[in-house]
Amino acid sequence: MPRPTPAGLYTSGLLLLTAATGAIDAVSYLALDGVFTGNMTGNVLFLAFALVGVSGIPLLNNAFALGGFALGSMLGGRLVRRGHPVGLPVRSGWVLGVGAALIFTLVGAWAALGDLGPAWQITLTAVLAALMGAQVAAVKPVGNTDITTVVVTNTLANVTRESRLGGGRQTALQWRHRFLAVVSMGAGAALGAAVLRVGDGPGALAASGVVFAAGVATLLVARRAQHHAERADAPAGALAVDQLATR
Rank of each mutant, 00 (worst) to 15 (best):
P2C: 08
L47I: 06
G22D: 02
A112R: 12
P141Q: 08
R164Q: 12
D200G: 11
A172L: 15
L14S: 02
L71H: 00
R161E: 12
V95L: 03
A137W: 06
T105I: 04
F49S: 06
A109S: 09
R91Q: 14
D146E: 15
T5D: 06
L60T: 15
F104E: 08
V183W: 01
Q243E: 15
W94V: 15
G13Q: 07
A19D: 03
R161P: 03
T160Y: 06
V195K: 07
R231S: 11
A204E: 02
N62Y: 09
V107G: 04
V216H: 05
G143W: 08
V136E: 10
T21C: 11
Y10G: 05
L165K: 11
V86S: 14
L45K: 03
A217E: 11
A234F: 07
G13R: 01
A229N: 00
L180M: 13
A217C: 08
R231D: 11
L219K: 03
A207N: 06
Q243L: 15
R82G: 13
V98H: 06
A65S: 15
S163K: 09
V54H: 02
P2E: 11
N62W: 03
S163V: 03
V136H: 06
A63H: 07
A229P: 01
T153L: 11
L30N: 12
F179E: 03
A7H: 14
T11K: 04
L106H: 01
T149V: 13
